[in-house]
Nucleic acid binder design. Structure first.
Length: 542
RNA sequence: GCCCUCGUAGUUCAAUGGAUAGAACGUGACUUUGCGGAAGUUAAAAUCGAGGUUCAAUUCCUCGCGAGGGCACCA
């Protein structure tokens, strides 16, 4: 359990004790927060419990905090807290004892690569679907957001005890407009998606394409090859391993699931005819309007919505407790429809949709927008070749998906201290270097536990390390991924600052050396764990 | 016109309703007979506007202004 939760429990116990002693009346304890306040000023942790209780008890919050302070000091007796204070409007500020901090660092060191993990997911099954780009086009800068966010979120969730499946939905239906257009181009009857690369592919597949029965068939053949390229790109360049590539054509059309879902909806009386097309009654379920699911053309072909409904029903049937979809901003209008659809076969809140905002590129002060429309598409392949995968992932994840981000190409390319990812990796490499030296000098790296020495910078580093499990739990709950790279920066900063004022090796008192080795070892491990969740390497040397 | 997201230092971004709004880049001033100076210390510098809810608002609500995206029988 992380320290924040541990403290919360202590406070709850204190409240209950006071209730049992009759100091407080019996009431249901409201939600309250334990947080890390501004550094240095208000304790190591701070709780707003008294402010919350003042309403229930109709008492002055400072008085309540005072009683809690006394009760906590009494029951804890210095084990966890060295001091408790009442401050401001009624905050309860708590200071951790050095022994407690030291013990926690020793534990963290023992946990090693599992430090930060938890079982809060309790084995719940989550399907996380992301990228799901059409194979007809290249992955562009916008896709990178969903790609890295999805992958990192999946990492954090599985680290937190969820059973996560990463899935890419492949839009390869022979009935889709894209595949038909692709087929036309393949057979020399159209211009869509025509690029040098595509023409090469067409040439390569000449034999197979000449045997194609129709445009749909030809498009399908070509799409298969394009998908193969995309899979290679995703795996090798973006370093993302999907557990599943879900084919719309094979899994939904060829298995009859699209027809099944049509019957299912029909039977429920959710389909009606209008203007020669068939519509789904979604406006009654939260969508802004009804939607066409079968076109009025002579083939009576379905729109994207019908297979998509079949797809989501299938996800539920595969036994997932929760579905996460990550879509680009251009799909934002689709969220309401899909949420409405969920009403037909499960609780609506089983589906969570994250929308990633757009990306602009800044290079040498010039800012250009990227969109399909302007024709100026910057591909992910180009970007990763340009700045490297570590830098790309780190830069993307540094920013909340809700903001339209600007990718600073020059800074991301910078192989120096200006670049934040190098700052973090440098900290890791620097620790590795000290540990190498320690080993050469004959220190036993796995030896002793840890004990705080009394230096301020050292304590700050220790507390920062111990924050890691709290950061992870927070992300697992709120998906605020940007806090993780920010955390690595802060941890690196705390290490560098510690390094500047505290010697690790060569102290007169050898016990300090040994103890600090334990501390930087767990700092290193924590950096490594955090970076690996982000998907960035932690180099031993640079 | 309707819907979604965003508006924070010069710039790019942080900040589960909390007490002194954090970083990085840029700008200014410092630090080295020791473990990696790709470092450390330090200064100046910001919540778009108007109301509201709250003990407490950058955060929630309403309106306005501004940026981006979406409003298909494309996906």
């Amino acid at each position: 359990m992380n320290i924040k939760n541990e403290i919360k429990i202590h406070i709850l116990d204190a409240v209950k004790n006071l209730q049992n002693e009759g100091v407080f009346s019996h009431f249901e304890i409201p939600e309250f927060e334990v947080e890390r306040p501004l550094e240095g000023a208000f304790g190591d942790y701070s709780a707003n419990i008294a402010l919350k209780l003042s309403k229930v008890l109709n008492l002055n919050p400072r008085d309540i905090a005072g009683k809690l302070k006394d009760e906590i000091s009494r029951s804890d007796n210095g084990k966890i807290f060295s001091k408790a204070d009442v401050a401001g409007p009624g905050f309860l500020n708590l200071y951790l004892s050095d022994d407690f901090v030291s013990g926690k660092i020793s534990e963290a060191k023992k946990e090693g690569e599992n430090f930060g993990s938890s079982d809060i997911g309790k084995g719940k099954k989550i399907l996380i679907e992301f990228i799901s780009a059409n194979p007809t086009g290249d992955l562009h800068l916008g896709h990178g957001r969903g790609a890295f966010f999805g992958d990192a979120l999946a990492n954090v969730l599985s680290f937190s005890g969820f059973l996560v499946t990463k899935e890419f939905y492949v839009n390869d239906s022979k009935k889709s407009t894209q595949i038909l257009e692709l087929g036309k181009t393949a057979l020399g009857k159209g211009e869509s998606y025509k690029t040098e690369k595509l023409l090469e592919k067409i040439k390569m597949l000449e034999g197979e394409l000449s045997e194609a029965k129709d445009e749909a068939d030809a498009g399908s053949v070509l799409a298969r090859e394009l998908l193969r390229d995309m899979q290679g790109l995703v795996k090798n360049k973006l370093k993302i391993d999907f557990d599943s590539w879900f084919s719309e054509q094979k899994e939904l059309y060829e298995t009859g699931k699209v027809d099944e879902i049509y019957d299912f909806l029909k039977k429920k009386g959710l389909i009606f005819e209008k203007e020669g097309a068939e519509w789904l009654k979604l406006s009654e379920y939260g969508d802004s309007e009804d939607r066409v699911i079968v076109r009025s053309d002579e083939k009576k072909s379905p729109t994207y919505l019908l297979p998509d409904i079949a797809y989501h029903k299938n996800k539920i049937e595969r036994g997932f407790d929760k579905l996460i979809n990550i879509w680009g901003a251009d799909h934002q209008g689709h969220v309401k429809s899909m949420q409405a659809v969920m009403n037909f076969f499960c609780e609506k809140n089983k589906l969570e949709v994250f929308i990633t905002q757009m990306v602009a590129l800044k290079d040498e002060g010039e800012r250009f927008k990227l969109s399909k429309r302007t024709g100026k598409i910057v591909t992910m392949e180009w970007l990763v070749d340009e700045v490297g995968i570590d830098s790309a992932r780190f830069f993307y994840l540094l920013k909340s998906i809700d903001t339209q981000m600007e990718f600073d190409l020059a800074l991301a390319k910078e192989q120096s201290e200006k670049n934040p990812i190098f700052y973090v990796q440098y900290a890791h490499a620097r620790i590795a270097s000290i540990l190498r030296k320690a080993e050469e000098e004959g220190y036993d790296l796995d030896g002793a536990g840890y004990e705080l020495s009394g230096k301020e910078e050292e304590r700050k580093l220790a507390l920062e390390i111990l924050k890691f499990p709290e950061v992870i739990e927070n992300i697992a709950e709120l998906a605020n991924m940007q806090t993780l790279p920010h955390y690595t920066l802060e941890l690196a900063r705390k290490f560098h600052s510690f390094y500047a004022s505290c010697r690790v090796l060569g102290n007169e008192n050898k016990n300090i050396d040994i103890s600090r080795i334990a501390l930087i070892k767990s700092a290193k491990q924590t950096l490594k764990n955090a970076l690996s969740l982000i998907g960035v390497s932690a180099p031993e040397k640079m």
